[in-house]
């Protein structure tokens, strides 16, 4: 391997430079627009939706968060954050559990796999409508029965953030979680578990002390997917949140009504949260890796 690398090091083919240029342009294409609105969200009070910048200020952020703006952002923000964290935890736990199940043989494993893939691929508007209809039917059928024995109030509906909303988000994040678990377990040598077995570890012990430490870095990846997919999710949320609105839903509604940089300020705020979470988790990942490597070295 090393010899090959050295041999290749000698000259770069001309195509390398063409492709490198293409890659650079692609990165500009990916980041350019987002950088534009990040910049424009700091417009001065008299600035508009496009360049030039009329000064530099936090005016639009103050307007957005001061409550003087068009929507109640604070509430939607807290709501989305709480939902995102819940989805994150559930996605990790359920995906790992299912991942372990797929390491063994069980009846219906193929069906479950295809259902997960289907949940990823079926258009979100269809799933969203379906969940809304399901909850309406359940309300029509079950609520009178439950109300008669005094469990719930006879009126109202069950659609909400932590009922249908949570379910809709899980139907979107779990396929990603499961696919990552597949990728992880396909590359995980089974002899480690068998060694643990041979040394007398119970099922739980071999999971807790052998498998879990090995897959931990990838669980961070699943957590990251869980949170950010939920935090930004909009198509499946559209019909399933009941009377509440998540942050992306507010944002999408604003695109048709707001004509000031306030919407860019909101966009910047949402992106800031995403990036904080991503880089925070990545930092945790690298710290974990380094600590583990150091521990491995001292034990040697």
């Amino acid at each position: 391997m090393a010899a090959k690398t050295v041999a290749r090091e000698e000259k770069r083919p001309r195509s390398f430079y063409a492709l490198a240029l293409f890659f650079a342009l692609f990165v500009v294409f990916l980041y350019g627009p987002v950088v534009t609105i990040l910049t424009l969200s700091f417009q001065g009070p008299s600035g508009g939706l496009t360049f030039p910048m009329n000064g530099f200020s936090f005016y639009w952020f103050e307007r957005l968060w001061g409550g003087g703006g068009t929507v109640d952002i604070g509430t939607a923000f807290r709501r989305s954050f709480a939902l995102g964290l819940t989805v994150m935890v559930l996605t990790v736990v359920i995906s790992v559990s299912a991942g372990l199940a797929f390491r063994k043989k069980f009846f219906g494993s193929t069906a479950l796999f295809y259902v997960a893939i289907a949940s990823l691929i079926v258009p979100s508007i269809v799933v969203s409508l379906g969940i809304a209809l399901e909850f309406r039917i359940v309300d029509d059928v079950l609520r009178p029965a439950l109300a008669s024995i005094g469990l719930v109030s006879p009126r109202g509906n069950s659609l909400g953030l932590f009922t249908s909303g949570l379910g809709a988000h899980l139907s979107w994040t779990l396929p990603f979680g499961l696919l990552i678990m597949f990728a992880v377990f396909n590359r995980l040598d089974k002899s480690y578990e068998e060694a643990a077995r041979d040394l007398g570890a119970s099922n739980w012990q071999s999971f807790r002390y052998v498998i879990l430490p090995m897959i931990a870095p990838f669980l961070i990846g699943i957590a990251l997917f869980g949170f950010t997919l939920s935090w930004d999710e909009i198509a499946r949320s559209s019909q399933t949140m009941g009377s509440t609105n998540t942050l992306p839903l507010e944002l999408a509604a604003l695109t048709t009504t707001v004509t000031t940089p306030e919407i860019y300020a909101l966009g910047t705020s949402v992106t800031a949260v995403s990036f904080t979470v991503i880089f925070g988790t990545l930092a945790a990942f690298f710290l974990l890796q380094r600590r583990r490597r150091r521990r491995a070295m001292t034990e040697d």
Binding site: A98, K104, V127, G130, E134, I137, G167, L178
Partner: peptide, 25 residues
């Protein structure tokens, strides 16, 4: 039964929030 218990939460989520909704539709 361990494999079934481990797969159950995911199966349940997909049943409640994917299969049944499609049937309802």
């Amino acid at each position: 039964w361990v494999a079934y218990a481990q797969a159950a939460p995911m199966a349940l989520v997909f049943l409640l929030f994917f299969i049944l909704p499609l049937l309802a539709t």
